[in-house]
Each structure stands twice: as structure tokens, then as C-alpha cells.
Amino acid sequence: MEFEGRVALITGGANGIGEGVARRLAGLGARVLVADVDAVRGQAVADDIGGAFVSCDVRDPRQSEAAVAEAVRAFGGLDIVVLNAGIATGFGLGDDFDPERYRSVMGINLDGVVYGVHAALPELKKRGGHIIATASMAGLMAMPLDPLYGANKAAVVALVRALGPVLAADGVTVNAVCPSFADTAIISGFKSFLESSGMPVLTVDEVVDAYLAVLRTGGTGECWYVQAGRPSEPFKFPNPPGPRTGSGARVTPHDPSQEG
């Protein structure tokens, strides 16, 4: 089986995209640790796929470290980390702004990725491995419906692009998957609006296909968009003007294949 002998840790693995990735990888032979704050649902998913469960609030770096330690304890190592835990923002910067909720959302959507990468790297470097962060199309384009969600997902995109060349020397790939609207709890508040507007909603399986494509390609520092009616592929970022030396040479490393 394709991923036999591989160990995967998936945050936000109790439902939605995380659950879909957990089930797909387990079906292809991987040993999967489901990490989530929903212990009842998370344990049920883990039991169903022959994996294991760990309670994990990704806002706390110690809990990400504990999840990595549990993957090693339960299955002997770590090869794949899917940093998928996420939440919609649901407020803006006007009268509805709530600093406490803002910190919580940023803690899940951005800090959870930062803490997850930091916790997983020591184990992934031992035998090479893969990190995939769940970003969003909102991280690649303006998201007027939820600008703060777009802000934290854009930060994940920038983090992945910067980490790609840095971690390549250690045999670790890091990529992002950027779905459009998918049929998960995040869109529950406006799913009917999307459908009445004729906006196609992705199935979870369509999004999961992109995660498998990322794992199979061997690329790094890429941000794969997932959009209904189009094959998923890395987004080609516009070529920015700098920073460069006086002669015009780039100062920072880059991958021309990722630029449009």
C-alpha cells in the first residue's frame, strides 16, 4: 500500500477536511494520529481507521509538542504532518470587532501552524518528511466576506513559501493546500448564500485529492489551489521586484517554477 510504514499526524482531524485526509491516508496504509479538541468525534474517527487519538488545542505550543510525542510513542516515528485545524472568523474591524475572539482565531489558524511546524521538525528531520498546512483561496486573493480570515491564511501562505527552501536541506518538504469554499463547518453560516448565488461548493473528497497530489509530487514551498472545475496545481505567484542587489540579482532564494 502506498503509504504503508508512514506515520501521519493530522490536527483538526475529527471532522471535515482533516477527517477526510485521515481516512484517505489510513486507507492507503499509513498509521494516523488524529489530533483535535473534539475528543468524542476524534476518538471515533481514530477507532474507525485503526489509528490513535490525542486531544490537542493548537493554540498551546505544549499540546502540539505532546501530539508529536504521542505519534512517536504510538507508532515509532513521524513522516507526515497535516496542520489542518482551522476556524472561521465571523467578524470584522468595525463595531463587531472582538480582541479576545481575534486572538483565539489567530491562535488556531496561524499560531497552530507555527507551533505545529516547530514541534514536528525534530522528528521529521530524522528520516525526512512532509508538512502540509491548510490555507485557503482567501490567502491568495482578497476576501471581503472575512478579511481577518484572509489575513491569517495569507500569513500561512507566506510562511510556507519561506520555509520551503529553508527546510529542503533537511529533507523536509512544506506545502499548503488552498481550497475555495468546501463543504465543511466553516461555511455553515453562509452555505445557502453560496448555493443560491450559483457558487460551486467543493466536496471534502475533492479537497483531499489535492493533499494526496502534494504528497506525491515531491515539491516544496508550494501553495496548491483547489477550485471547482479546475485541476489542482501550485499557484504561480507574480514575480515581485525585490529585494535585489545593485546589479539586479535577487538577494533571497527563490523558485522560478512558482512564479508567473
Rank of each mutant, 00 (worst) to 15 (best):
E2V: 13
F3M: 07
G5I: 11
V7F: 02
A8K: 00
A8E: 07
L9E: 01
I10T: 04
I10W: 01
T11R: 02
T11N: 08
N15W: 14
G16S: 12
E19W: 09
A22W: 00
L25V: 08
G27L: 12
G27M: 12
R31I: 00
V32M: 02
A35V: 11
D36S: 12
V37H: 05
Q43G: 11
A46P: 07
D48N: 13
F53T: 00
S55V: 13
C56N: 10
D57Y: 06
R59K: 13
D60G: 10
R62L: 15
A66L: 13
A67G: 07
E70D: 13
G76A: 09
L78D: 00
D79S: 11
I80Q: 02
I80N: 00
A85F: 07
G86E: 04
G86V: 08
I87A: 11
D95I: 08
D95M: 08
F97V: 04
M106P: 02
N109A: 02
N109D: 13
G112Y: 12
V113K: 04
Y115I: 09
Y115K: 07
V117E: 04
H118I: 06
H118G: 06
A119G: 03
A119D: 09
A120V: 05
L121R: 02
P122G: 07
E123F: 10
R127Y: 10
R127L: 12
R127W: 13
I132R: 01
S136K: 05
M137H: 08
L145W: 07
D146P: 03
L148A: 00
Y149C: 06
N152D: 15
V157P: 02
L159H: 05
L167W: 02
L167G: 05
L167H: 06
A169Q: 15
G171E: 07
V174E: 02
V177K: 03
V177M: 10
C178A: 12
P179S: 06
F181V: 05
A182W: 03
A182N: 00
T184Y: 08
K191P: 07
L194Q: 08
E195V: 15
E195M: 12
S196E: 15
M199T: 15
V201R: 03
V201G: 08
L202W: 00
T203L: 03
A213R: 14
A213D: 14
R216W: 01
T217F: 07
T217R: 15
G219Y: 12
T220F: 10
E222L: 09
E222D: 12
C223P: 04
W224P: 01
W224L: 09
G229A: 10
G229N: 11
R230M: 15
E233I: 04
P234T: 05
P234C: 05
F235W: 13
F235N: 03
P241G: 08
P241E: 04
R244F: 02
S247F: 09
S247M: 10
G248K: 13
V251W: 11
H254N: 05
S257C: 07
E259M: 12
G260D: 09
